[in-house]
Design a binder for these strands. Structure first.
Lengths: 230, 230
DNA sequence: AGGGCTTAGTGCATTAATTCACAAAGTCAG
DNA sequence: CTGACTTTGTGAATTAATGCACTAAGCCCT
């Protein structure tokens, strides 16, 4: 109760930590040992105060006058984000996108192995895609239990998305990544992230139209300077 | 100068308009003629005041005591977002994801036809995927000119993403949707939206871990009530 | 040992976004 | 025509996020 159960990190900061992690992994791969908030800020395209504030939510892990240690910060960010372990993923919907995601190595390489893919279309069930056989969505509960699934990814049609979500929740899943262009209705105990590719283009369309209407000013000055690190 | 060139709509509101549009299209398809801010709010999973404020940026198109007219609001949102026309898309990177997106009908159906796909790998150039032949990234400038491309989608490896962006910008593209897990360095005159699928899972991982640490409280009350409209 | 230099950490001001809450404007029934 | 009811539109309050600017710490060079 009175005991502080966990540092509360603002959502906006949480969403940036994976970006920092990505960059730090690259730095580590090129044998960079240390970095300053200025350098990370340049690489991440944000301002240095924001980087320092974000990292300060993890604790005071920097050294004044010096900066932060790459490997130690990677450790701390991973710990905070819950990336010290793998989280198993099941994909619901074996269409183009679902199959592409099942093969997508960006999931596995970041600690999210896709351990199953299911569909409700008998024509798709049984097909094999990159070492996974498409299962029946009706077996979701068993798959989730047997494969210890933690996260569900919905790549069904929009018509089927809500029932896919219901099936995932019924199977005990509490984290969902939804690619279908519908707003899911879920209990508040379930985390849902919604990625709508059409929406992304529509947002770009707004700014593109705005540029056209207000007259194109061809500014080619770089917004993010590619600052060499160390 | 003193003349108001264009209503300035907050970024957060712009990002929600496509969601509203999506929902209104569904309503129109089921012959719903009118809706209130309360109803749209329930369907979009936000609060009613936010809906009203967002819609008010478009103008005063509601009727007090009644609500909004579905088709008219669809028109207004489309006008505002620049969706009265099509915007042509080129995909750079013909891997799993790139090919899946080229086939993805969610782009075409929302007014973003994919008119080209290119890669730098000679083994992929020349292949055909869903009526498109993979072109050479070196020809990007010609493709952009000939096909009147407005938006570039980057689905290359992270190593190739920056040069893909440079090539798009060189070819005159000012709107980019980037799926590669790197922060692109671009002029400020170019709009970039970054969708990093790994990041989305990492964010889910944080909240999932938090639930585990703080003890799972199995709340199954629906957050979004599926309110019938009209 | 000390002074200059660098950089983290953070309180505070600012800006952006959200939410409240209510007046204004309309409908509808009788 | 009037009064009860509904729902928009929006000032104002609140909350969240950002960015500034300064203090505190540590390094390095002489």
């Amino acid at each position: 109760m009175t005991q502080l159960q966990r540092r509360k990190i603002p959502d906006a900061a949480i969403a940036r930590l994976p970006i920092y992690l990505q960059i730090l992994n690259n730095l580590a791969a090129t044998n960079v040992l240390q970095f300053s908030s200025d350098e990370l800020a340049a690489l991440a395209g944000v301002n240095a105060a924001k980087v320092r504030k974000d990292l300060s939510y993890l604790g005071s892990y920097g050294t004044r006058g010096v900066g932060y240690e790459v490997t130690y910060l990677i450790y701390q960010i991973k710990r905070e984000l819950g990336l010290m372990r793998e989280w198993n993923v099941v994909v619901v919907g074996a269409g183009n996108l679902g199959c592409a995601l099942a093969k997508f190595d960006g999931f596995l390489s970041r600690g999210f192995p896709v351990v199953g893919i299911v569909d409700n279309d008998p024509k798709k069930i049984g097909r094999t895609t990159s070492s996974l056989t498409v299962g029946d969505v009706a077996d979701l509960k068993n798959i989730v239990r047997d494969e210890k699934v933690n996260i569900g990814v919905i790549t069904t049609s929009s018509a089927a998305a809500q029932s896919a979500a219901d099936a995932l929740i019924e199977a005990g899943i509490t984290s969902i990544l939804n690619f279908a262009p519908v707003v899911l209705s879920t209990p508040s105990s379930v985390s849902v992230r919604h990625v709508d590719l059409g929406v992304e283009l529509q947002i770009l369309s707004y700014y593109e139209q705005m540029r056209i209407e207000t007259g194109i000013k061809s500014d080619t000055s770089p917004e993010l300077s590619k600052v060499g690190v160390q």
